[in-house]
Amino acid sequence: MSLLIYGLITSVTLALYAVGFSLVYGVSGIANFAHGAIYILSGYFIWMGLNLLHLPYWLSFSLSIFLTAFLGFSLYWILLYRVRGIPLAELVTTFATGVAILEFMTWAGFSGIRFSLPPILNGSVEIFGVFLDLQRLVVLASGVVLVVGLYLFVHHTKVGLAFRALAQSERTALSIGIESDWVGSLSMALGSAISAVAAVAVLPLGIMEPTIGYEVLIYALAVAIVGGLESTPGMVIGGLLIGYGQLITAKLFGPKWMIIVPLSMIVLVLGIKPSGIFGKSKELEERV
């Protein structure tokens, strides 16, 4: 039973990592390899707000989310805007930016036990005979809220409509008056904000370290690919598959086999059905 519940929490965490990444990729076609760096950076924003500026809890959370969104937005206009349409340059730019951020934080000494965030809710509850701290429930709740909220946003607002239009065909979207750069930068902002929300929920569970950024990137890629690169329900399924797969592997073979699960799943899914379990719109494009 505890395996089941903790597996669920892990899965939701993984899905949280992936939602922002897949949103940006699905809308603007930019594989944002700086995703992990943005995620961990937002955690440090919160820490700075709490410890350096002594802001109250909720203010520093929302400030961090806002700052991260602004960061994604300006990343688009400063860097990506100039190299749009050259996939190689896009990829190198985002990856190098991410590594630059992470390595700078490592150099500046942003690691260690003092860099931890206090949990939003203290205490623990007992569910089906399993003790669970409340922060893990916050993760669960924020995962559900984010996925549902994103689905509603993309399907029932005007900006969401523009997102879907751009995802389907950039040229057609341009011809009916959707400014693709604006929508692209908005998607970057929203994707970064989502990763900040994920950081708010997940990071209090452990201490913060810049190396988490790389890990988050790998998991985000794995979940996004397994679930299908632009589908929101795919994120949930991908997260569940990889989360439970990891737990079961760790139980059967030992923890050092854990990282093999997401990697081999990526390879398998790409080899068999590259659009992922839920992706369908790009079926024709990704293979000939």
Binding site: L91, I260, L263, V267, G271, R287
Partner: peptide, 28 residues
């Protein structure tokens, strides 16, 4: 050869993941 039919970013991802997988397999 099974994945050369993939295009663009999909081929990139699988080639990115394979060395990591091999590395972990050697470790394990």
């Amino acid at each position: 050869s099974p994945v050369v039919r993939l295009r663009g970013v999909y081929f990139a991802m699988i080639t990115l993941m394979l060395p990591m997988l091999l590395m972990r397999l050697i470790e394990a």
